[in-house]
């Protein structure tokens, strides 16, 4: 799959905010001259933070439209086989 083939399908956006919180700001962080930080990493994180906030708001509204009432049988929102 080429980099340009990546596409996000509509309903997947419901869990995208959760996913971004995991993949952007977590994981082992390495530093030093063997690593290239794309631009200033702090700037990137700030930019992504704004992005996450924006999309989370959108997701909240989408969830309000689609989510069933809360109940004790906790739904699992993410599966490893893909979104």
């Amino acid at each position: 799959m080429s980099d340009d083939d990546l596409e996000l399908l509509g309903d997947d956006r419901l869990v995208l905010g959760d996913l971004l919180n995991h993949v952007l700001d977590k994981g082992i962080v390495i530093s030093g001259d063997v690593t290239i930080a794309v631009a200033d990493i702090d700037l990137i994180r700030v930019g992504l933070g704004i992005y996450i906030t924006a999309i989370q708001s959108e997701l909240d509204h989408a969830a309000a439209r689609t989510r069933t009432p809360p109940h004790a049988n906790v739904p699992v929102l993410h599966h490893p086989s893909g979104l």
């Binding site: 990546l6 990137i44 992504l48």
Partner: peptide, 13 residues
């Protein structure tokens, strides 16, 4: 990185 449609699919992948 400010482009939702660019970052999102890459995060999923």
């Amino acid at each position: 990185i400010a482009d939702v449609d660019w970052v999102g699919p890459r995060a999923v992948a």
